[in-house]
Every structure is written in structure tokens, then in C-alpha cells.
Nucleic acid binder design. Sequence first.
DNA 1: AGAAAAATTCAGGCTTCTCTCAGGAAACTC
DNA 2: GAGTTTCCTGAGAGAAGCCTGAATTTTTCT
Lengths: 235, 235
Amino acid sequence: MIQSTDQATARVLVVDDEPNIADVISMALKYNDFEVATAGDGNQALEQVAEFRPDLIVLDVMMPGLDGFQVAKRLAERSADIPILFLTARDTTDDKIRGLTIGGDDYMTKPFSVEELIARIKVILRRAGRTAADSPRLTFLDLELDDDTREVFRDGHPIELTDTEFRLLRYLMGNPRRVLSRAQILDHVWEYDFAGDARVLETYVSYLRRKLDKYGPGLIVTVRGVGYALREPKD
Amino acid sequence: MIQSTDQATARVLVVDDEPNIADVISMALKYNDFEVATAGDGNQALEQVAEFRPDLIVLDVMMPGLDGFQVAKRLAERSADIPILFLTARDTTDDKIRGLTIGGDDYMTKPFSVEELIARIKVILRRAGRTAADSPRLTFLDLELDDDTREVFRDGHPIELTDTEFRLLRYLMGNPRRVLSRAQILDHVWEYDFAGDARVLETYVSYLRRKLDKYGPGLIVTVRGVGYALREPKD
DNA sequence: AGAAAAATTCAGGCTTCTCTCAGGAAACTC
DNA sequence: GAGTTTCCTGAGAGAAGCCTGAATTTTTCT
């Protein structure tokens, strides 16, 4: 019973044999107002599909017993027609994965960033038309960010961002004005098991500022001792 | 007895092997209208979860026997799905801790300030939607304070505050008109084992007054020999 | 494989914050 | 109104936090 702007929150089934991963994902999804169920292997997954009737499945490819592709195949045979987001290890040969993005499906390699996962899930659901789709376009003052095209504009001027810069900006724009702690940002924007130097964040904030502030006043404010926030410049 | 806007007060379980800490926290929580139970180790904690059915757990990481992470893991396996606020020593490597803010969880390093603890607990519960969420925005006359954005306004004018100034003002605004003793303020706003010169408080009151009174009459009154209070100016 | 781009680490320098201290002002007491 | 206590506030040292350029490693592309 929270804000729940759309009456139908989407249901997502998370299938992964590593409980830690399943937990991370399901926590993140719940936090983003999805209904979540989990399964630890292929058979459980098939049961859950029948019971829980998910709108989307996050499906690990590498699992003991029925692997992800096999699960997908069974579902296709049942013509269950539920979009799937596959999770694969980094070194999985692309061959099998390739054909996936042709349908409504998609895939990500582990480890991924949570923001990215959420973003992709929203894209898929939006396509499938099952959720009251927030627009893929985020705006904040004269800043615009398009999730589909990955374009960013400030005051109409296109701005080239690298992948990390883009994800960082998207997270900030998704939480305008709210002060986000360093830990929050690292957890959401970087890969979930990122254990490196937390100063990357400072560096990337620095990069973003340099690019964004070419066309207007600074928007990313430092809240010393806490974190960063997107905020209208004080005039 | 106090405002208690929501009929259902949230239940919080405090788990710490140092009784002093557990006491400090549970007193503070009770004072803020939470129902509180405590546990001294991991196993007690698991029992209490079953009995007391808390809405949130304040969980020390470093404990003899089952440590905090292990407790959390057990709970996750039971899919108990209760948000957790971890307490860690200052020097704990971030590695294990980070990753927590993906879900609804959060963490604080000891020693912390009690006000900050309460504030974070409210944030988590608000997110989890289990309590009729007081808005993150405190107001007193023409003063406004937003906990999410850490913005403060007086009569519409934005006011820049440092971290300590902000926490002090939040405490005052959370207890409008009530006279707060120096000891209370030091205990809540500063780290609980703060042993420095108590005159810091005077200095910070001074800072706050200077910033706030630019846009209106003085709101922080000195109650000589006792402490300070937020109070409407006598006309 | 080689080159280019991106991501991350690192270190120096700079800014800001916190807390201490001390003199003076204000408020109480008698 | 003098004495005493309490409080206010400016100044400054030290520490913490932050920024940014540059070096290094990793990844991607051709």
C-alpha cells in the first residue's frame, strides 16, 4: 500500500540457483514496486509460472538440471509467451544469446548493475504493453535523457556520454533532488559486486559535470559527508 | 500520548551484544513511539523475529556466535523479508556492507548519532510502506526541512546547511516547542560517545541562528540553565 | 593483433567542516 | 547595581572530504 500509481504492478519471476543473486535482484525489484517471486531451479520456475503468472521472467542461463534455455523452450511449447531477460556469465559464447533480442527478450551478463537491470526490465514491459510504462525519457530542467536511444541533451545540445556516465546520470535523474549516498550510487550504478575504489564515483561526477556544465549552470551538487544530488542551481 | 498519527506503530527489533548500545537505541526508539524488543545475539534474534514479528531489525554485524550477516541470510532463506539496518564498526571494509542499499536495507557505522538512526529507520519504513509514513518534510512556521533532499527553506528562501547544522535543526524541528536539554541534544545529534567540549553546541546554535534569522525573527530560543527550544517568536 | 576508447586507480592540492578557545555580552541573583 | 553565572560569537588549527589530471589497466573495435 504505497504510492502505487498504476493499479497493476507488474509481476516478475526471478530464477537463479545462487540465492545471493536471487536475493539481490528480488530486493531491488521489490524496492521498485514490482511483485516478485523466486525460483531456485528450472522445475521450480515452471511451477511458479503456472502459479504466479509473471509478466516477465529474469532467468539465469547456467543452472543445474533444466538450464535457462530449456526452461524458455518449454514455455514456448506451452506458448506461454512471457518475455524473458536472460542472465549469463560473462564468458558465455554469444552464439546462443544472439537471437534473443529479436523477440521481446533480452539478456545481461553477470555481474551487472542493478540500475541497468531495472531499466531493461522496464523497457521490455513497456514494449509488451503490460505496464503503465513510465516514459523512457527523463527530464530535469533543461536536461533530457532518452533511455531508448541513449541520447542526452542539455538545453537542446546533444551530449556524448560513455556508458558509465550515462548510467550515473540516469540514476541521478531518476531520483531528482533526493540526496543519494555514495553507497547507494555505487550499488545501483556499478556492478553489484563492485569492490573497487569508491573514488571512481568522484571521478565520474567530475566527468559528468564537465560535459553537462558546458551548456548551463551546475546541476550536480555535492552534499558533503553524504553524497550527491541533482538540484536546480541557486540563482 | 504524543502525536502518533498512525494507529499502527511499527515494531523494531534491536540486536546488539553490548547491552549499553541496545539500551540507548531502544530508549530512543520507544521515545519515538516505536514498539521495541531486543536480542543479545543471533539466535535470540531469530527467536524474536518469530515471536515479535518486527517490521524492521536494527542488527549489529559484529556479534559472538551468529553474526549479523548470518542472521540476515537465515532470514532471507525463510523469506522473512524484513528490512534491516546494519550497525558496523567504523573500520569494517565496505565490501560486505555495500550491496545493502540495493534493497530496502541500510547501514550505519558506530558510533552514530541517535537522531540519524531514527531518521534512517523512518526512511526505510516509509519505503517499505508499512507505516503511515510521516512525510519526510518537517515544517515549523515558515521553516521547512526536507529529509530526502536535505534542503531547508525559510520563508521560501533556500538555506545552505552543513551536515551537523542540518542534524541539529532536524532534531529541534522534530521536537517543536519542547525544551531540549544540552545533554539531550548532544546525545541525539552528536555521536553517542561524543566526549568533546559541550560548547560545540553553542557554536552550532550560533551558526544556525545566523543562517536562519536572515529571513525572519529568531526561532531558536535559549532556555537559560536548561537548553534550547524552537518556539514562535513573541511578537 | 594492434589501436583506440573506456574504466579504474592514484596522488596532490584545495576547499570546507568541525571543534576548541577566549573575550565579551547578556541574564540572573542578591 | 555589583557580582556571578551562563551564553554568544569570532577566529583559527587541524582534519576530513572532495576534485581533478594523469597513469594504468581493461575492454572494445577494426
